[in-house]
Design a protein around this nucleic acid. Structure first.
Length: 260
DNA sequence: AGGTATGTTAATTG
DNA sequence: GCAATTAACATACC
Protein backbone atom coordinates (compact mmCIF):
# COMPACT_ATOMS: atom_id res chain seq x y z
CA UNK A 1 0.00 0.00 0.00
CA UNK A 2 2.54 2.52 -1.03
CA UNK A 3 1.53 5.81 0.49
CA UNK A 4 3.88 7.89 2.62
CA UNK A 5 4.13 5.48 5.58
CA UNK A 6 4.72 2.53 3.28
CA UNK A 7 7.38 4.33 1.27
CA UNK A 8 9.03 5.53 4.48
CA UNK A 9 9.11 1.89 5.61
CA UNK A 10 10.77 0.93 2.32
CA UNK A 11 13.24 3.76 2.80
CA UNK A 12 14.25 2.43 6.19
CA UNK A 13 14.42 -1.07 4.78
CA UNK A 14 16.90 0.02 2.11
CA UNK A 15 18.83 1.98 4.73
CA UNK A 16 19.15 -1.16 6.84
CA UNK A 17 20.10 -3.46 3.98
CA UNK A 18 21.44 -2.07 0.73
CA UNK A 19 23.66 0.92 1.55
CA UNK A 20 27.42 1.08 0.95
CA UNK A 21 27.51 -2.06 -1.14
CA UNK A 22 29.09 -2.04 -4.57
CA UNK A 23 26.60 -2.71 -7.34
CA UNK A 24 27.80 -5.48 -9.60
CA UNK A 25 25.01 -5.45 -12.16
CA UNK A 26 21.63 -4.02 -13.01
CA UNK A 27 18.90 -5.95 -14.78
CA UNK A 28 15.72 -4.26 -16.02
CA UNK A 29 12.88 -6.62 -16.95
CA UNK A 30 10.35 -3.79 -16.63
CA UNK A 31 11.75 -1.27 -19.08
CA UNK A 32 8.24 0.21 -19.62
CA UNK A 33 8.48 1.74 -16.18
CA UNK A 34 11.58 3.75 -17.00
CA UNK A 35 10.94 7.46 -17.28
CA UNK A 36 13.36 9.50 -19.39
CA UNK A 37 16.03 6.83 -19.12
CA UNK A 38 17.03 3.44 -20.54
CA UNK A 39 18.35 0.13 -19.20
CA UNK A 40 21.76 1.12 -20.60
CA UNK A 41 21.78 4.49 -18.87
CA UNK A 42 20.64 2.85 -15.65
CA UNK A 43 23.50 0.36 -15.84
CA UNK A 44 26.00 3.11 -16.53
CA UNK A 45 24.75 5.13 -13.58
CA UNK A 46 24.56 2.23 -11.10
CA UNK A 47 27.09 -0.44 -11.96
CA UNK A 48 30.30 -0.11 -9.99
CA UNK A 49 28.71 2.45 -7.68
CA UNK A 50 27.00 2.15 -4.31
CA UNK A 51 23.95 3.68 -2.65
CA UNK A 52 25.05 6.00 0.11
CA UNK A 53 21.87 7.60 1.37
CA UNK A 54 18.11 7.29 1.23
CA UNK A 55 15.59 10.10 1.00
CA UNK A 56 11.87 10.39 0.43
CA UNK A 57 9.44 13.02 -0.75
CA UNK A 58 5.78 12.09 -0.54
CA UNK A 59 5.43 8.70 -2.20
CA UNK A 60 8.75 8.92 -4.05
CA UNK A 61 11.87 7.15 -2.79
CA UNK A 62 15.32 8.49 -3.71
CA UNK A 63 18.42 6.33 -3.43
CA UNK A 64 21.49 8.51 -3.60
CA UNK A 65 24.61 7.12 -5.24
CA UNK A 66 28.20 7.80 -4.27
CA UNK A 67 28.52 10.28 -7.14
CA UNK A 68 25.56 12.30 -5.89
CA UNK A 69 22.95 11.18 -8.44
CA UNK A 70 19.69 9.53 -7.46
CA UNK A 71 17.74 6.46 -8.46
CA UNK A 72 14.08 7.46 -8.09
CA UNK A 73 11.35 4.89 -7.41
CA UNK A 74 7.60 5.29 -7.29
CA UNK A 75 5.56 2.27 -6.28
CA UNK A 76 2.19 2.85 -7.91
CA UNK A 77 -0.46 0.77 -6.19
CA UNK A 78 1.35 -2.52 -5.73
CA UNK A 79 5.09 -1.84 -5.80
CA UNK A 80 7.48 -3.08 -3.12
CA UNK A 81 11.14 -3.83 -2.46
CA UNK A 82 12.90 -7.00 -1.43
CA UNK A 83 16.50 -7.53 -0.43
CA UNK A 84 17.50 -11.18 -0.61
CA UNK A 85 20.14 -13.70 -1.51
CA UNK A 86 20.16 -16.94 -3.46
CA UNK A 87 16.44 -17.58 -3.83
CA UNK A 88 15.06 -16.89 -7.30
CA UNK A 89 13.98 -13.31 -7.68
CA UNK A 90 10.31 -12.55 -6.97
CA UNK A 91 7.71 -12.65 -9.70
CA UNK A 92 7.01 -9.30 -11.36
CA UNK A 93 10.46 -7.94 -10.62
CA UNK A 94 10.89 -4.82 -12.74
CA UNK A 95 14.37 -3.85 -11.60
CA UNK A 96 16.97 -6.18 -10.14
CA UNK A 97 20.16 -4.81 -8.62
CA UNK A 98 22.87 -7.31 -7.75
CA UNK A 99 25.55 -6.29 -5.25
CA UNK A 100 29.11 -7.54 -5.08
CA UNK A 101 28.28 -9.37 -1.84
CA UNK A 102 25.83 -11.59 -3.70
CA UNK A 103 22.69 -9.99 -2.29
CA UNK A 104 20.08 -8.46 -4.54
CA UNK A 105 17.55 -5.68 -4.31
CA UNK A 106 14.39 -6.28 -6.32
CA UNK A 107 11.83 -3.63 -7.16
CA UNK A 108 8.65 -5.63 -7.64
CA UNK A 109 5.45 -4.27 -9.19
CA UNK A 110 2.77 -6.79 -10.27
CA UNK A 111 0.72 -4.03 -11.85
CA UNK A 112 3.18 -1.92 -13.71
CA UNK A 113 1.90 1.38 -12.42
CA UNK A 114 5.11 2.52 -10.77
CA UNK A 115 8.03 4.49 -12.14
CA UNK A 116 11.81 4.20 -12.25
CA UNK A 117 13.93 7.26 -13.03
CA UNK A 118 17.31 8.86 -12.57
CA UNK A 119 17.89 12.40 -11.48
CA UNK A 120 20.95 14.45 -10.65
CA UNK A 121 18.97 16.75 -8.40
CA UNK A 122 16.19 15.69 -6.05
CA UNK A 123 14.77 19.19 -5.55
CA UNK A 124 14.65 19.68 -9.26
CA UNK A 125 12.80 16.36 -9.67
CA UNK A 126 10.24 17.34 -7.02
CA UNK A 127 9.74 20.66 -8.77
CA UNK A 128 9.29 19.06 -12.17
CA UNK A 129 6.64 16.72 -10.74
CA UNK A 130 5.00 19.75 -9.13
CA UNK A 131 4.78 17.98 -5.80
CA UNK A 132 3.58 19.88 -2.76
CA UNK A 133 5.56 19.79 0.47
CA UNK A 134 6.06 16.40 2.07
CA UNK A 135 3.15 15.81 4.43
CA UNK A 136 5.43 14.96 7.36
CA UNK A 137 7.60 18.04 6.93
CA UNK A 138 4.69 20.41 6.99
CA UNK A 139 4.46 22.84 9.91
CA UNK A 140 1.10 24.03 11.29
CA UNK A 141 1.38 27.49 9.73
CA UNK A 142 2.26 26.16 6.29
CA UNK A 143 -0.61 23.73 6.61
CA UNK A 144 -3.08 26.52 7.36
CA UNK A 145 -1.79 28.58 4.47
CA UNK A 146 -2.05 25.66 2.08
CA UNK A 147 -5.59 24.92 3.23
CA UNK A 148 -6.65 28.51 2.75
CA UNK A 149 -5.24 28.64 -0.76
CA UNK A 150 -7.49 25.90 -2.12
CA UNK A 151 -11.14 24.93 -2.35
CA UNK A 152 -13.12 21.76 -2.92
CA UNK A 153 -13.55 18.57 -0.91
CA UNK A 154 -11.29 17.80 2.02
CA UNK A 155 -10.63 14.19 1.01
CA UNK A 156 -9.59 14.97 -2.54
CA UNK A 157 -7.48 17.83 -1.22
CA UNK A 158 -5.62 15.47 1.10
CA UNK A 159 -4.99 13.05 -1.76
CA UNK A 160 -3.83 15.68 -4.24
CA UNK A 161 -0.03 15.40 -4.48
CA UNK A 162 0.25 18.95 -5.81
CA UNK A 163 -1.08 20.35 -2.52
CA UNK A 164 0.82 18.11 -0.15
CA UNK A 165 2.71 14.96 -1.01
CA UNK A 166 2.34 11.50 0.47
CA UNK A 167 -1.30 10.86 1.29
CA UNK A 168 -3.53 8.54 -0.72
CA UNK A 169 -6.91 6.92 -0.34
CA UNK A 170 -6.24 4.69 2.66
CA UNK A 171 -4.47 7.23 4.85
CA UNK A 172 -6.81 10.08 3.95
CA UNK A 173 -9.60 7.93 5.37
CA UNK A 174 -7.62 7.30 8.55
CA UNK A 175 -6.72 10.98 8.98
CA UNK A 176 -10.33 12.08 8.52
CA UNK A 177 -11.50 9.39 10.94
CA UNK A 178 -9.03 10.48 13.62
CA UNK A 179 -9.93 14.14 13.03
CA UNK A 180 -13.64 13.21 13.14
CA UNK A 181 -14.34 14.93 9.87
CA UNK A 182 -16.78 13.50 7.33
CA UNK A 183 -14.97 12.72 4.06
CA UNK A 184 -17.53 14.68 2.02
CA UNK A 185 -16.92 17.92 3.88
CA UNK A 186 -15.61 20.83 1.87
CA UNK A 187 -12.54 22.80 2.91
CA UNK A 188 -14.51 25.95 3.34
CA UNK A 189 -16.89 24.24 5.79
CA UNK A 190 -14.01 23.52 8.19
CA UNK A 191 -13.79 25.87 11.15
CA UNK A 192 -10.50 26.57 12.92
CA UNK A 193 -11.15 23.75 15.37
CA UNK A 194 -11.67 21.28 12.52
CA UNK A 195 -8.49 22.49 10.85
CA UNK A 196 -6.47 22.08 13.98
CA UNK A 197 -7.76 18.54 14.48
CA UNK A 198 -7.04 17.79 10.84
CA UNK A 199 -3.44 18.92 11.17
CA UNK A 200 -2.93 16.98 14.39
CA UNK A 201 -4.52 13.85 12.93
CA UNK A 202 -2.38 14.13 9.82
CA UNK A 203 0.85 14.19 11.82
CA UNK A 204 -0.35 11.63 14.32
CA UNK A 205 -1.57 9.09 11.77
CA UNK A 206 1.58 9.31 9.67
CA UNK A 207 3.91 8.98 12.65
CA UNK A 208 2.03 6.10 14.21
CA UNK A 209 1.61 4.15 11.00
CA UNK A 210 5.33 4.58 10.28
CA UNK A 211 6.03 3.26 13.80
CA UNK A 212 3.82 0.30 12.90
CA UNK A 213 5.84 -0.15 9.70
CA UNK A 214 2.64 0.53 7.77
CA UNK A 215 1.34 -2.86 8.88
CA UNK A 216 -2.43 -2.69 9.58
CA UNK A 217 -2.00 -5.41 12.21
CA UNK A 218 0.43 -3.28 14.23
CA UNK A 219 -1.43 -0.01 14.14
CA UNK A 220 -3.07 1.34 17.37
CA UNK A 221 -6.40 -0.28 18.25
CA UNK A 222 -8.17 3.07 17.80
CA UNK A 223 -7.37 3.10 14.07
CA UNK A 224 -9.86 2.54 11.31
CA UNK A 225 -7.24 0.97 9.04
CA UNK A 226 -7.80 -2.69 9.96
CA UNK A 227 -11.56 -2.17 9.74
CA UNK A 228 -11.84 -0.82 6.22
CA UNK A 229 -14.82 -2.91 5.36
CA UNK A 230 -18.48 -2.08 5.04
CA UNK A 231 -20.34 -2.97 8.22
CA UNK A 232 -17.29 -3.58 10.44
CA UNK A 233 -17.83 -1.99 13.86
CA UNK A 234 -16.17 1.40 14.30
CA UNK A 235 -13.24 1.00 16.73
CA UNK A 236 -14.45 4.07 18.64
CA UNK A 237 -18.21 3.65 18.94
CA UNK A 238 -19.17 0.34 17.35
CA UNK A 239 -21.38 1.88 14.68
CA UNK A 240 -21.07 -0.05 11.41
CA UNK A 241 -18.44 1.46 9.14
CA UNK A 242 -19.83 2.87 5.91
CA UNK A 243 -18.34 2.46 2.45
CA UNK A 244 -19.02 5.04 -0.24
CA UNK A 245 -17.45 6.33 -3.40
CA UNK A 246 -16.04 9.77 -2.65
CA UNK A 247 -13.72 11.77 -4.87
CA UNK A 248 -13.61 8.82 -7.25
CA UNK A 249 -12.28 6.41 -4.66
CA UNK A 250 -13.73 3.93 -2.21
CA UNK A 251 -13.93 5.73 1.12
CA UNK A 252 -14.62 4.24 4.55
CA UNK A 253 -15.82 6.25 7.50
CA UNK A 254 -17.92 6.13 10.65
CA UNK A 255 -21.21 7.97 10.15
CA UNK A 256 -21.48 8.63 13.88
CA UNK A 257 -17.94 9.78 14.70
CA UNK A 258 -17.68 11.76 11.47
CA UNK A 259 -20.97 13.62 11.12
CA UNK A 260 -21.71 15.26 7.78
C1' DA B 1 -16.84 -13.76 -15.85
C1' DG B 2 -16.84 -9.50 -13.79
C1' DG B 3 -15.89 -6.23 -10.40
C1' DT B 4 -12.39 -4.29 -7.56
C1' DA B 5 -7.81 -2.68 -6.12
C1' DT B 6 -3.41 1.33 -2.12
C1' DG B 7 -1.62 5.75 -7.86
C1' DT B 8 -0.92 9.14 -11.57
C1' DT B 9 -2.16 11.60 -15.56
C1' DA B 10 -4.74 13.35 -19.52
C1' DA B 11 -9.01 14.80 -21.28
C1' DT B 12 -13.33 16.77 -20.49
C1' DT B 13 -16.78 19.58 -18.37
C1' DG B 14 -18.38 23.10 -15.27
C1' DG C 1 -6.79 28.75 -13.71
C1' DC C 2 -9.24 25.65 -10.57
C1' DA C 3 -12.10 21.68 -9.26
C1' DA C 4 -14.59 17.44 -10.28
C1' DT C 5 -15.17 13.41 -13.09
C1' DT C 6 -13.86 9.77 -16.01
C1' DA C 7 -10.90 6.81 -18.55
C1' DA C 8 -6.63 4.72 -19.19
C1' DC C 9 -2.62 2.31 -17.73
C1' DA C 10 -1.43 -3.60 -16.41
C1' DT C 11 -2.34 -7.31 -13.57
C1' DA C 12 -3.94 -10.12 -9.50
C1' DC C 13 -7.46 -11.49 -6.67
C1' DC C 14 -12.08 -12.59 -4.99
Amino acid sequence: MPELPDVETYRRYVGATALHKVIRSTHVPGAELLEDTSPQALGRQLDGHAFEQTRRHGKYLFLQLDDGGFLVLHFGMTGRLRYFKDSPHPEHTQLLITFANGYRLAYVAPRKLGMIALTADMDDFVKRKELGPDALQLGPDDFRELLESSRGGVKSWLMNQHHLAGIGNVYSDEILFQARIHPRRSLKSLDSDDRQRLYRALQDVLKKTIDAQADPDRVPASFLLPHRQEGEPCPRCGTPVRQEEIAGRTAYYCPRCQPQ
